[in-house]
């Protein structure tokens, strides 16, 4: 049930993200929402469900991005998912800044994974320079969205979950 809920939440957010940032006039710095979504899922889902969720998120991103080769984001998000839990265990993540920091680290790691995948498996001209150029601002922007997405998820989750009273009346 949680997997389905998180998948729907991810689907809506990913579909909304790109047009929203185009409206604001900064399409190049659209944050990578897969990172905050993975950080939320890491605490809500078990191992297999979590990795499966990462694959679903990657599939959504691949499907939503025009001209993107299928599998690129799936692979990237799954590899990042493998790094999420060890990172959360290794680092004492607390408070707003803690989550922003983890988001930044994961975004940089994600860009490096993307770079390797593009270099090894994608034919055609790719702007590798652009990946390096936008890496830090992109990571900061992605990091900043972590607490926001988390707060939004918690807010929706709190409203969607049945309380004791509603269960009693059912």
């Amino acid at each position: 049930m949680q997997l389905l809920w998180l998948s729907l939440f991810g689907y809506v957010l990913l579909a909304l993200e790109s047009p929203l940032f185009e409206q604001m006039g900064i399409p190049l710095y659209t944050p990578d929402l897969a990172i905050p979504l993975l950080l939320i899922a890491a605490r809500k889902l078990e191992d297999f469900s979590f990795l499966f969720y990462a694959a679903i998120l990657g599939l959504f991103i691949d499907g939503m991005t025009p001209l993107q080769p299928l599998g690129l984001n799936m692979e990237r998000v799954i590899i990042v998912a493998y790094a999420v839990r060890p990172l959360l265990t290794a680092l004492p993540v607390r408070g707003f800044l803690g989550y922003v920091g983890v988001g930044i680290i994961l975004s940089i790691f994600s860009d490096l994974v993307l770079l390797v995948l593009l270099k090894l498996l994608v034919a055609g001209p790719v702007q590798y320079g652009l990946i390096f150029e936008r890496m830090i601002p992109y990571a900061i922007l992605t990091g900043a969205t972590v607490p926001l997405v988390e707060a939004l998820a918690n807010w929706i989750w709190a409203r969607g979950r049945p309380t004791k009273d509603t269960m009693f009346h059912q």
Binding site: A55, L67, G71, L72
Partner: peptide
């Protein structure tokens, strides 16, 4: 399952990344 989760997207990428209109 771990192997599948890594290899399936990798295979998909290998196939679709070979050409932009694949």
């Amino acid at each position: 399952i771990h192997a599948l989760l890594i290899l399936v997207p990798l295979t998909l990428l290998h196939y679709h990344g070979a050409h932009v209109n694949r």
